[in-house]
């Protein structure tokens, strides 16, 4: 069972309390953008086997959206952090580097 700590209310919530929200840090492209950018934003996904960043909502708790850094290959959770950021914070990146040296995910590493 997946357990994530909600960065807002501090609860350790198991997944029945949470709603998964898919890949995090998508760059939004709207009308007027190129077909490539629009397609990439709407449909294309990283889907990595390894380090991944996701959006989650503490649905049956405080109701807020947050981000999680996980490994999809081992189900290890590296940490959770606020949704008000376009990039994982440095302490999360450091935690991942300690466990998965040399990891990359899109332009973050």
């Amino acid at each position: 069972m997946l357990i994530l700590e909600c960065p807002y209310c501090g609860l350790h919530a198991d997944e029945t309390e949470l709603a998964p929200g898919g890949e995090a840090h998508l760059k939004r492209f709207g009308p007027g953008s190129s077909d490539d950018d629009f397609e990439g934003y709407l449909f294309m996904r990283e889907n990595p086997k390894g380090v991944h960043f996701e959006r989650w909502r503490h649905a049956n708790g405080c109701g807020k959206w947050f981000h999680a850094a996980r490994d999809t290959n081992t189900l290890e959770v590296f940490g959770t952090y606020s949704a008000q950021t376009t990039e994982p914070p440095q302490d999360i990146k450091d935690k991942i580097s300690a466990r998965r040296p040399g990891w990359t995910w899109r332009e973050f590493a």
């Binding site: 449909f43 996904r45 889907n47």
Partner: peptide, 18 residues
Amino acid sequence: GHSGVLAEMAGFRLPIES
């Protein structure tokens, strides 16, 4: 399930999640 992994090797992305 490993389509995303192979697509990455081949240099493209897919509208797929595993």
